[in-house]
């Protein structure tokens, strides 16, 4: 609960960003909260192809706290006139030791009107290993101009092997300037909140 409050306060005071890699020389701070964990993640991008960062985590399922030293690499990007597609490799080593880590993939494809994304993560822990996956599809109800408030209506389906069940729920995403916010809710998983600020 404490870290949840810290996350929200951080967001309110700083704002937050969405992509796992920023522009070259840029950095991003994110806060994330769902039924498994609450975290704050800061990353810096020496290049647009990769980022390094620290994620501080409160894990509600295992009732413990730890951090990940994270590395994200852009495996693939396809830019066209009307779309962009990305595929990222993500990984992290835990503050609890080299035998605790995660790795996975994150991908998205978007136009100004449509969005499709997914994430797959395998986490190795001494207590118990687990696998998480999500798939997300969205549409922008209007196409905003640069500097406007942008809105996305999405559906997200996710599974965590610790809970061993899928949940599908609506998600609203808003961004304006350097701030991005994403809110999802279902009775099963309760709130799923993702906030970002690009520095």
């Amino acid at each position: 609960m404490g870290i949840r409050i810290i996350c929200l306060l951080s967001v309110m005071s700083l704002g937050l960003d969405a992509r796992p890699i920023s522009y070259t020389g840029g950095s991003t701070i994110m806060a994330f909260s769902d039924n498994i964990k609450n975290s704050i993640y800061y990353h810096y991008s020496p290049s647009y192809k990769y980022s390094i960062g620290i994620e501080v985590i409160r894990n509600d399922y295992f009732n413990d706290n730890y951090s990940f030293l994270r590395y994200t690499y852009l495996l693939n990007r396809k830019n066209t006139e009307n779309s962009q597609r990305n595929l990222y490799f993500q990984s992290g080593i835990s503050s609890k030791g080299f035998d605790e880590f995660f790795y996975g993939l994150h991908g998205d494809w978007e136009t100004r009107r449509l969005f499709i994304g997914f994430g797959l993560n395998e986490t190795k822990r001494k207590i118990q290993d687990y696998f998480e996956q999500y798939y997300q599809i969205g549409v922008a109800p209007y196409v905003g101009d640069y500097g406007d408030l942008h809105t996305w209506i999405m559906i997200k389906a996710k599974e965590n092997s610790l809970k061993n069940s899928w949940s599908t729920y609506p998600v609203l995403k808003f961004f304006k300037g350097n701030v991005l916010m994403e809110f999802g809710y279902s009775k099963k998983t309760e709130w799923d909140v993702h906030l970002m600020y690009r520095l």
């Binding site: 920023s22 522009y23 978007e110 991005l180």
Partner: peptide
């Protein structure tokens, strides 16, 4: 420019 489909993602261009 190709791939400039998202306001949030284009912010870096302005900053650079």
């Amino acid at each position: 420019v190709q791939g400039m489909v998202c306001d949030f993602c284009a912010r870096g261009i302005e900053k650079i």
